[in-house]
Design a protein around this nucleic acid. Sequence first.
RNA 1: GGAGAGGUGGCCGAGUGGCUUAAGGCGCACGCUUGGAAAGCGUGUUUACCUGAAAGGGUAACCCGGGUUCGAAUCCCGGUCUCUCCA
Length: 424
Amino acid sequence: MLTIQSLREDKEQIAAALDKRNIDVRQDLDQILLWDAERRSTQAKLDDLLAQSNALSREIGTFMREGKREEAEAVKVKTASFKEETVTLKDKMHGIEQQMHDVLCAIPNAPHSDVVAGRNAEDNVEVFRSGSAETLDRHTKPHWELAEEMDLIDFELGAKVTGAGFPFYKGKGAKLQRGLIQFFLQKADEAGYTEYIPPLMINAESGFGTGQLPDKEGQMYHMQNDELYMIPTGEVPLTNIYRDEMVKEGDLPIKLCGYTPCFRREAGSYGKDVRGLNRLHQFDKVEIVQLSRPNDSYALLDQMVDHIKELLEGLELPYRILRLCGGDMGFTAAMTYDFEVWSAAQERWLEVSSVSNFETYQASRLKCRYKGAEGKMHLVHTLNGSALALPRIVAALLENHQDENGIQMPKALAPFCGFDRIEA
RNA sequence: GGAGAGGUGGCCGAGUGGCUUAAGGCGCACGCUUGGAAAGCGUGUUUACCUGAAAGGGUAACCCGGGUUCGAAUCCCGGUCUCUCCA
């Protein structure tokens, strides 16, 4: 969340940045600052009261040790009024803090100055394009047809065993899946990311730390008997490794990666856009995460973008990179680049990666800090990106690399799959 | 699932309800010492918030949350995690 300190310093600048998300938070910010002032004066009163009452208690202790019971009893009488007032002030503090927290949690991150204002995906800015996004000059089949013909993916079986959006991968389809994961992890390893295999369920604290809770409660599968949530992305367990931790400045940037299945309820999704692999309840993803010093984070964001470019080039897929506009960015991000690959048969762009810098927004919830050389504590910046999400990559591979009687695997990928062609 | 033991600072480890933010040790930092190092000696070594220009002062925190008490690391209740044994 936004830090109270940044609001004190830069209220209008933050409000102006949030205008780009088409929300006006000025009233909220003013209210927060009023509460902040009230909180401070209440704290001062409370501390003073506690100091006095501590002094009395010490007096009582001294008398008791010296066996002066009567004197001790006399002082005890004096403490009664303090007690009542401290309880009142403590309640007041808690009330104020709770209100501030609730309002603060409901405010999304302030976009970076390079982020443009905009209403939705149409206002996103294309910053890079590779390959041509054209229909192949012959008939192309959509991936769901290819997958069925070549017996790679069974959607109906998944629907039977679990439900829609939970496909089975089969034979070369399964091997392709595994090959892609291995390819992505290998590249992440070469780029210096430490691999983790994290838990696939998280508790509420972790959900709050990265910002899924309370904002997106309905998007996660919730195990109510155990108060656990299925992860919607590897970002959650990976980033939460550093919740409530102080890291050494010299260890930054910290680079982690991990392969995980991801689970999303996708409530309300239906229709053409969700056909085949386009939108699933369970899908595989390799995630890369970084923790950095504030001054380095945008350079690292660029590095992550380059890393993902390399992956897509290895897969020989046409793609483009968009810098999201304010209205299309996720709640917690300060800047986001989306990667989209061209689907030759569906003739549309499919999002396969989203790379973001959260600046201190997650870190303030996570309480992840480092001590600077000058001895002061600072929140780290957190970043993450998909590198990459599998299903739409599979869709694009099938569609873009199909020929008369099969699908040709990109050279870079073939060794990881164990075959270079798929044929019916 | 059942029974028991336990969670103290970066680590180890003490702690009859008051003089304990916490002994002692290790580690770490700085200084002295030394030809250099080690040893030795000395000093320092958590975080959050409030206050202050700063130095400093105040408050809170001994797994988490409640409670008892003038006063809780210490007593009580609930939760959680770890270990041992049983199923």
